[in-house]
Amino acid sequence: MHDLTGAPETALAWHKAGRKVALATVVETWGSAPRRTGAQLVIAEDGEMQGSVSGGCVEGAVVLEALEAMEDHLSEGPSHKLLTYGVSDDDAFAVGLACGGTIRVLVEPIGSALLVDMLSELVAARAARTPVAYEVNLETGARALREDSYPDRFRLDRSGVEEDGATFVAVHNPPLRLVIVGAVHIAQHLTQMARAAGYDPVIIDPRPAFASLERFPGETLLDDWPDAAVEAAGLDTRTALVLLTHDPKLDDPALLKGLASDAFYIGALGSTRTHAKRVQRLTEAGMTEAQIARIHAPVGLDIGASGPAEIAVSILAEMTRVLRKGA
C-alpha cells in the first residue's frame, strides 16, 4: 500500500517535536525542470531535509533560504519566500540547473506563513482520503483549503498557478486505488500494471484457489464475499472497481455496492450479450438506468486485445481515460 506519510505529515510531526520547520513547494516550472509542480521538500532548523524540489539541483540553495526564512519570521510583509532558479540565474547555474529548466519555489515557515492549524487540517484531510486544494496568494500570503473548487485540477492531479498569476493551488489527491473482484489471470497482469501506474490494488475473491499469495505475491487479498469485501475496502472518487469473475453470484453483489458509491470507474468483464443479461438483473434489483450506464462493459478500450495481458492493458487504458478526461 502507499505510504501516506508525505511532506505535510513530516512537517507537522517535526513541528510538534519542537523543531522550526519550513515547507518548500515547486509552484511553477518551465523547460526541462526535473520535478513537477507541487513537489515538496521539508526543511528543519538543523538542516535535515526530506523530499525534493529539483532532484538535487537546487536543494542546497533552497535549504539556505528556508533557514533564513525561519529566522526572519518576525519581519514585516509576507512571511514566505518565492524563489526562482534557472539557467540565467548564477546561483542556480552554480548548483547544476544548467539544462534549460527553470523553477519557482515557495518557501513557507510553519507557524508564521503556513499556520499550524491549517497544516493540521490538511494532514487530517489527507488521512481521511478527502481531496483538498491548498490555495495561497503568492503576493499577499492569504491561504485557504478548498474542497469544492478547481475540479479540473483535481481530475488531472495538476497543481499550479492560476491565470491571475498570483494564486498558487496545490492539489492534494488521495492515492489512486484499484479494487479487483476476481483473482483470475487478467487480474495478475492488471495488478502489476496498475501498481506501476500509481494505484494501490486490492484483490477480492472468496475462492482460495484463486486468491492466493502464490499467485499474487505481496498484494492485498480479501477473501470475504464481494459485497462485504468491497464495502470494507471502501470506494471513493479516487478508486476504480473492476469485476473479472464472469460469475453473477460474485460480480453482482460487488456491482450493487459500486453503483451506490463515488468510484470514478466501474468496469465489468463480459461480452455484449453477457452485459445485456447483467443490465436486466441490475434493473430488477432496483438500479436506475443512469446508475447502470456507469458500467464500462465490455471492460476496457477496444484495441483488439488478445490474451490476459493485452486485456489488462485495455482496462488500464480505459481507467486512465476516464480518470483524466471523464466518462
Score class of each variant (00 low, 15 high):
112 S>F: 01
52 S>K: 05
236 D>C: 04
22 A>S: 13
138 L>P: 12
145 L>M: 12
256 L>T: 01
291 Q>P: 03
326 G>E: 06
282 L>K: 03
156 L>D: 10
38 G>Y: 07
321 R>E: 15
23 L>H: 12
56 G>A: 11
219 E>S: 10
150 Y>T: 01
296 H>F: 08
92 A>I: 02
251 D>L: 01
258 G>Q: 00
254 A>F: 03
181 V>Y: 06
143 R>L: 12
269 L>P: 09
284 E>D: 14
248 P>A: 04
254 A>N: 01
279 V>R: 14
318 E>N: 07
294 R>H: 03
14 W>R: 14
241 L>C: 03
79 S>L: 15
201 P>F: 02
118 M>N: 00
163 E>Y: 10
232 A>V: 10
320 T>C: 07
47 G>M: 06
74 L>F: 13
94 A>K: 09
289 E>D: 15
58 V>H: 03
255 L>R: 01
237 T>I: 12
188 Q>I: 09
98 A>H: 08
326 G>P: 08
305 A>S: 14
307 G>A: 07
83 L>Q: 11
327 A>S: 15
131 P>T: 09
36 R>E: 15
100 G>P: 03
46 D>I: 08
272 T>G: 12
6 G>M: 02
244 L>D: 01
124 A>H: 07
274 T>Q: 06
320 T>Q: 12
223 D>I: 13
234 G>L: 09
178 L>H: 05
121 E>P: 06
7 A>C: 10
257 K>W: 00
59 E>N: 11
302 D>V: 02
120 S>H: 06
185 H>D: 01
178 L>A: 03
